[in-house]
Protein backbone atom coordinates (compact mmCIF):
# COMPACT_ATOMS: atom_id res chain seq x y z
CA UNK A 1 0.00 0.00 0.00
CA UNK A 2 1.41 3.33 -0.99
CA UNK A 3 1.55 6.30 1.34
CA UNK A 4 -1.10 8.18 -0.64
CA UNK A 5 -3.67 5.41 -0.13
CA UNK A 6 -2.95 5.37 3.59
CA UNK A 7 -3.37 9.13 3.77
CA UNK A 8 -6.58 8.91 1.76
CA UNK A 9 -7.97 6.23 4.08
CA UNK A 10 -7.12 8.28 7.16
CA UNK A 11 -8.70 11.37 5.61
CA UNK A 12 -11.87 9.42 4.75
CA UNK A 13 -12.15 8.07 8.30
CA UNK A 14 -11.62 11.56 9.72
CA UNK A 15 -14.34 13.01 7.50
CA UNK A 16 -16.80 10.31 8.57
CA UNK A 17 -16.03 11.01 12.24
CA UNK A 18 -16.46 14.76 11.74
CA UNK A 19 -19.80 14.26 10.00
CA UNK A 20 -20.97 12.05 12.85
CA UNK A 21 -19.99 14.57 15.51
CA UNK A 22 -21.51 17.44 13.55
CA UNK A 23 -24.81 15.60 13.18
CA UNK A 24 -24.81 14.84 16.90
CA UNK A 25 -24.41 18.54 17.66
CA UNK A 26 -27.19 19.50 15.26
CA UNK A 27 -29.47 16.91 16.83
CA UNK A 28 -28.80 18.30 20.30
CA UNK A 29 -29.53 21.82 19.09
CA UNK A 30 -32.78 20.79 17.38
CA UNK A 31 -33.88 19.04 20.55
CA UNK A 32 -33.14 22.16 22.54
CA UNK A 33 -35.17 24.38 20.20
CA UNK A 34 -38.04 21.93 20.32
CA UNK A 35 -37.95 22.12 24.11
CA UNK A 36 -38.06 25.90 23.86
CA UNK A 37 -41.24 25.77 21.81
CA UNK A 38 -42.78 23.52 24.46
CA UNK A 39 -42.33 26.32 26.97
CA UNK A 40 -44.08 28.69 24.57
CA UNK A 41 -47.06 26.33 24.36
CA UNK A 42 -47.58 26.58 28.13
CA UNK A 43 -46.94 30.30 28.10
CA UNK A 44 -49.59 30.73 25.42
CA UNK A 45 -52.07 28.68 27.41
CA UNK A 46 -51.64 30.88 30.45
CA UNK A 47 -51.87 33.90 28.25
CA UNK A 48 -55.28 32.80 26.97
CA UNK A 49 -56.62 32.03 30.43
CA UNK A 50 -55.93 35.42 31.97
CA UNK A 51 -58.52 37.63 30.15
CA UNK A 52 -61.19 35.22 31.40
CA UNK A 53 -59.84 35.55 34.90
CA UNK A 54 -59.82 39.35 34.77
CA UNK A 55 -63.42 39.33 33.50
CA UNK A 56 -64.51 37.05 36.33
CA UNK A 57 -62.71 38.98 39.02
CA UNK A 58 -63.69 42.49 37.86
CA UNK A 59 -67.19 42.29 39.29
CA UNK A 60 -65.96 41.31 42.75
CA UNK A 61 -62.76 43.26 43.24
CA UNK A 62 -64.01 46.79 42.79
CA UNK A 63 -61.40 48.35 45.06
CA UNK A 64 -58.38 46.54 43.67
CA UNK A 65 -58.10 48.28 40.32
CA UNK A 66 -54.30 48.49 40.38
CA UNK A 67 -53.86 44.77 40.93
CA UNK A 68 -55.97 43.97 37.91
CA UNK A 69 -54.14 46.59 35.90
CA UNK A 70 -50.81 45.10 36.91
CA UNK A 71 -51.91 41.70 35.71
CA UNK A 72 -53.03 43.07 32.37
CA UNK A 73 -49.83 45.10 32.06
CA UNK A 74 -47.62 42.13 32.83
CA UNK A 75 -49.55 40.11 30.28
CA UNK A 76 -48.97 42.71 27.58
CA UNK A 77 -45.28 42.86 28.51
CA UNK A 78 -45.00 39.12 27.99
CA UNK A 79 -46.77 39.40 24.66
CA UNK A 80 -44.53 42.18 23.42
CA UNK A 81 -41.24 40.87 24.74
CA UNK A 82 -39.01 39.73 21.93
CA UNK A 83 -35.63 38.89 23.34
CA UNK A 84 -33.66 35.86 24.36
CA UNK A 85 -35.56 33.06 26.09
CA UNK A 86 -34.08 34.23 29.38
CA UNK A 87 -35.34 37.80 28.96
CA UNK A 88 -38.72 36.40 28.09
CA UNK A 89 -38.60 34.22 31.18
CA UNK A 90 -38.04 37.32 33.27
CA UNK A 91 -41.25 38.84 31.89
CA UNK A 92 -43.05 35.57 32.53
CA UNK A 93 -41.87 35.59 36.11
CA UNK A 94 -43.18 39.11 36.65
CA UNK A 95 -46.47 37.95 35.19
CA UNK A 96 -46.46 35.05 37.64
CA UNK A 97 -45.83 37.51 40.45
CA UNK A 98 -48.75 39.73 39.41
CA UNK A 99 -51.06 36.71 39.30
CA UNK A 100 -49.84 35.59 42.73
CA UNK A 101 -50.74 38.98 44.19
CA UNK A 102 -54.16 38.74 42.59
CA UNK A 103 -54.80 35.32 44.11
CA UNK A 104 -53.48 36.43 47.50
CA UNK A 105 -55.88 39.37 47.54
CA UNK A 106 -58.75 37.21 46.36
CA UNK A 107 -58.64 35.50 49.76
CA UNK A 108 -60.35 38.64 51.09
CA UNK A 109 -63.41 38.09 48.93
CA UNK A 110 -65.52 35.16 50.15
CA UNK A 111 -67.99 35.62 47.31
CA UNK A 112 -65.20 35.31 44.80
CA UNK A 113 -63.79 32.24 46.56
CA UNK A 114 -67.13 30.49 46.12
CA UNK A 115 -67.36 31.34 42.44
CA UNK A 116 -66.93 28.03 40.60
CA UNK A 117 -65.62 29.71 37.51
CA UNK A 118 -62.95 31.54 39.49
CA UNK A 119 -61.85 28.39 41.32
CA UNK A 120 -61.60 26.53 38.04
CA UNK A 121 -59.50 29.29 36.51
CA UNK A 122 -57.27 29.39 39.57
CA UNK A 123 -56.67 25.66 39.33
CA UNK A 124 -55.99 25.86 35.61
CA UNK A 125 -53.49 28.68 36.08
CA UNK A 126 -51.66 26.88 38.87
CA UNK A 127 -51.48 23.80 36.70
CA UNK A 128 -50.16 25.80 33.74
CA UNK A 129 -47.48 27.36 35.92
CA UNK A 130 -46.37 23.91 37.04
CA UNK A 131 -46.28 22.82 33.43
CA UNK A 132 -44.17 25.82 32.50
CA UNK A 133 -41.71 24.83 35.21
CA UNK A 134 -41.69 21.26 33.90
CA UNK A 135 -41.08 22.48 30.34
CA UNK A 136 -38.21 24.66 31.54
CA UNK A 137 -36.63 21.75 33.29
CA UNK A 138 -36.80 19.68 30.14
CA UNK A 139 -35.28 22.62 28.27
CA UNK A 140 -32.50 22.73 30.85
CA UNK A 141 -31.75 19.05 30.34
CA UNK A 142 -31.47 19.54 26.59
CA UNK A 143 -29.23 22.58 27.14
CA UNK A 144 -27.10 20.47 29.44
CA UNK A 145 -26.72 17.87 26.69
CA UNK A 146 -25.73 20.49 24.15
CA UNK A 147 -23.33 22.32 26.47
CA UNK A 148 -21.63 19.11 27.53
CA UNK A 149 -21.12 18.23 23.88
CA UNK A 150 -19.69 21.66 23.12
CA UNK A 151 -17.30 21.56 26.06
CA UNK A 152 -15.94 18.03 25.81
CA UNK A 153 -13.12 16.89 23.60
CA UNK A 154 -13.10 16.15 20.65
CA UNK A 155 -16.60 17.48 19.98
CA UNK A 156 -15.43 20.90 21.22
CA UNK A 157 -13.18 21.30 18.16
CA UNK A 158 -16.00 20.61 15.69
CA UNK A 159 -18.36 22.81 17.68
CA UNK A 160 -15.85 25.65 17.48
CA UNK A 161 -15.38 25.15 13.73
CA UNK A 162 -19.10 25.37 12.99
CA UNK A 163 -19.95 28.03 15.51
CA UNK A 164 -22.11 26.11 17.97
CA UNK A 165 -22.67 28.28 21.02
CA UNK A 166 -23.39 27.27 24.57
CA UNK A 167 -26.86 28.13 25.83
CA UNK A 168 -27.88 29.45 29.22
CA UNK A 169 -30.01 27.60 31.73
CA UNK A 170 -33.32 28.74 33.08
CA UNK A 171 -33.39 29.37 36.77
CA UNK A 172 -35.93 26.94 38.08
CA UNK A 173 -36.92 29.02 41.07
CA UNK A 174 -38.75 31.93 39.53
CA UNK A 175 -37.74 35.37 40.78
CA UNK A 176 -41.30 35.96 41.91
CA UNK A 177 -41.01 32.99 44.22
CA UNK A 178 -37.86 34.19 45.89
CA UNK A 179 -39.27 37.45 47.16
CA UNK A 180 -42.42 37.41 49.29
CA UNK A 181 -45.60 38.65 47.68
CA UNK A 182 -46.34 42.23 48.63
CA UNK A 183 -49.96 42.86 49.39
CA UNK A 184 -51.25 46.30 50.36
CA UNK A 185 -54.69 46.85 51.78
Amino acid sequence: MSITTIILIIAAVLIVIIIGIYNGLVRARVRMREALSDIDVQSKRRFDLVPNLVETVKGYMTQERTILENVTKARTAVMQSSGTPLEKADMENQFTGALKTLFAVSEQYPNLKSNMNFLELQRELEDTENKMMAARRFYNSTVQDLNTKIQTFPTSIIAGMFGFREEKFFEITASAEREPVKVKF
Binding site: A134, A135, F138, S141, T142
Partner: peptide
Protein backbone atom coordinates in the same frame (compact mmCIF):
# COMPACT_ATOMS: atom_id res chain seq x y z
CA UNK B 1 -48.26 12.33 35.00
CA UNK B 2 -48.73 15.16 32.52
CA UNK B 3 -46.24 17.48 34.23
CA UNK B 4 -43.58 14.83 34.65
CA UNK B 5 -43.98 13.79 31.02
CA UNK B 6 -43.25 17.36 30.03
CA UNK B 7 -40.13 17.34 32.21
CA UNK B 8 -39.01 14.08 30.65
CA UNK B 9 -39.84 15.29 27.14
Amino acid sequence: VENLSITAG
